[in-house]
Amino acid sequence: MSVLLVIFLMWAVTYPVRWLGLSLGRLHLPPFWLSFLQFVPVSVFAALVVPEVLGSPEWPRRLVACMVGGLLMWRTGSLAPGILGGFAAYWVVRGVGF
């Protein structure tokens, strides 16, 4: 199969699922499932963070970065200082040789 066809098929299995969720906004859902959807952000963000930190071969560095970054984001309420501060902390730990 040609590369172009594979790329097209990759698109064909990706775009519709993105569209599907967005298109179900008017679907009437019982309270349980509305509550379910309210917990999706918390649940997904945690699932995106933890394996990337604890499952990484360089987990001690990432753990320190996330502790520093998380504290900064909690104090400032803004993303950029947390990311930059956490990244700096990562390099401090890496620089010391951990």
């Binding site: 918390v42 963000f45 963070v49 990337e52 560095r61 970054g69 984001m73 309420g77 990311i83 956490g86």
Partner: peptide, 23 residues
């Protein structure tokens, strides 16, 4: 070492949502 930016970003989005014991 930039891979650490992704967990940092999502952590930053997660932290303000942790408002209750259930979350």
């Amino acid at each position: 070492g930039v891979a650490v930016v992704f967990p940092l970003a999502f952590l930053g989005l997660l932290v303000p949502l942790l408002k209750s014991r259930v979350t």
